[in-house]
Design a binder for these strands. Structure first.
Length: 428
RNA sequence: GGAGGGAUGGGAGAGCGGCUAAAUCCAUCAGACUGUAAAUCUGACGCCCUCAGGGCUACGCAGGUUCGAAUCCUGCUCCCUCCA
């Protein structure tokens, strides 16, 4: 294993890190030069990875690249408990096939960031499958309810007289036992995982193992700019989003998220990061419309929010798809949104003579009832919505805005609703 | 075992007999503007129709009271809190 220079240590322990417990020991063990056994768990009931997960994966990848080994825990038992970190929602049991399928989906995404050669996936059922009630009692006996009630999330719910399921108390315990089972050296998680990770550390110590180090990573804000990125809040950018969606969602981020995203999701050097922060800071043009013209100093001219977002979008899209796809997505974006031109791939929809959208037709086109045509083209969910869109002047046919519901539509016409919904009408 | 609280539109959350297709906020969509699908402002936001109007469905489920119910009553189902 390579010896570590200070720069590498800083990169590992400073950037994109919330807390390392204890930090000095972590650095010492990194320098020992022996492979560490890194642990990270995942919930197989939600196999969709998004950029919020990538923050942690990138950190793990850095460590893999230094020769450390990751053990990925497939949480097929904890998944049955539900998400203890907030929204209480009863979860149905997953079948073994579901778990396996979800795990495969997960890994497919996972290995876009991680190194498969230094990753080993294990299922919790390897040890919990054999668990007996007395094992459970022994496990629970190490901790007190009072201790668990101090967990931030539980404390808040208890104070607010909101429910805390008994099984949720089991969640940290199971997760902790995973650390014992695999003899983890370091466990990783978001800052909201701190309590669970520490329980693992404590349990290992109680059963006579060397206690794991705990490594927490900052939570990435979602596309709304406020709440953490999560699927249930629908403010996420999925790893498997199409290049176009991924790029587009990044372009729609609030400007003040730009520095965080660069910091946590890219390798831009720290000094460049500082420049970005300075440009986006409270006195930046984005926050002060009066000075929205950026000084045309060479090298700094690229530091306006839109260009930064394009760069961010292109870099990230390239990671999860390909550089070519990323460039194409950027060009598409520029064409459709900046120059208001038409996109490359427009779905063609055949409209036949019996369609209610067709009032009468001839060889070149037809007289259309737009309230029927838009739903038929998948440009509106219902006739009511179609009418609303028409009233709002959102509809264009070959660039013309119709003034009524009845209008002549030639075959091959491009129908556009708003700025991003398109369809081409073909004879059917 | 006992006492109490609740179930409303994609989410949160008002309403507590007619003025309620249901306040407000968020999300969403559109228009304007722009540096972008940012920000801001404006508007829309159940479905259907021969559409400046009309109709149908909707406030956990099933009944009931009433000219009229999301709102009152009864029974169910589900959820939550507290006491023991």
């Amino acid at each position: 294993m390579p010896t570590l220079d200070q720069q590498t240590i800083d990169r590992i322990t400073k950037r994109g890190v919330a807390q390392i417990i204890p930090e000095d020991e972590f650095i010492r063990r990194l320098q020992e030069g022996r492979p560490l056994r890194l642990k990270m768990g995942f919930d197989p009931s939600r196999p969709d990875l998004h950029l919020g997960h990538v923050v942690g994966l990138r950190k793990l990848r850095q460590l893999q690249d230094l020769g450390h080994e990751l053990i990925l825990i497939v949480g097929d038992w904890t998944a049955q408990i539900g998400d203890p970190s907030g929204a209480s929602e009863t979860r149905t049991m997953l079948s073994a096939e579901d778990v396996r399928e979800n795990a495969e989906t997960y890994m497919r995404q996972f290995f876009k960031v991680m190194d498969p050669n230094r990753t080993r996936a294990v299922y919790q059922s390897e040890w919990f499958g054999k668990f007996t009630l007395s094992d459970v009692i022994r496990l629970t006996s190490h901790f007190t309810v009072n201790q668990f009630l101090h967990r931030d999330d539980f404390a808040q719910r208890y104070a607010g007289q909101r429910p805390i399921a008994v099984t949720e108390m089991l969640y940290p315990l199971l997760q902790a036992y995973d650390s014992v089972a695999i003899e983890a050296d370091v466990e990783f998680g978001g800052t909201d995982q701190l309590f669970n990770l520490l329980v693992g550390r404590e349990l290992q110590e109680k059963v006579g193992q060397r206690p794991q180090l705990v490594f927490t990573m900052p939570i990435l804000p979602g596309t709304d700019g406020v709440r953490k990125m999560s699927k249930s809040l629908d403010n996420y950018i999925a790893i498997e989003d199409t290049p176009r969606d991924m790029f587009g969602k990044i372009m729609s981020l609030p400007d003040d998220l730009i520095p965080v995203y660069f910091e946590l999701l890219t390798d831009v050097p720290d000094d460049e990061l500082d420049a970005i922060r300075a440009a986006m800071g409270p006195t930046s043009p984005s926050a002060n419309p009066a000075s929205s013209v950026i000084p045309a100093k060479a090298g700094i001219s690229s530091l306006n929010p839109m260009d930064l977002k394009k760069r961010l979008g292109e870099e990230l899209t390239a990671v999860f798809h390909s550089p070519g796809a990323a460039t194409a997505a950027r060009e598409e974006f520029e064409r459709v949104f900046q120059r208001r031109e038409t996109p490359e791939d427009i779905p063609e929809v055949a409209v036949g003579p019996t369609s209610p959208a067709v009032v009468s037709r001839d060889a070149d086109g037809f007289d259309a009832d737009l309230s029927h045509l838009l739903p038929a083209l998948n440009l509106a969910a219902s006739r009511s919505e179609a009418r609303r869109l028409l009233q709002q002047n959102a509809v264009q046919i070959d660039g013309e805005r119709p003034d009524g519901e009845r209008v002549r539509v030639p075959y091959g016409a491009l129908v556009r609703v708003g700025s991003r919904r398109f369809a081409r009408v073909v004879r059917g």
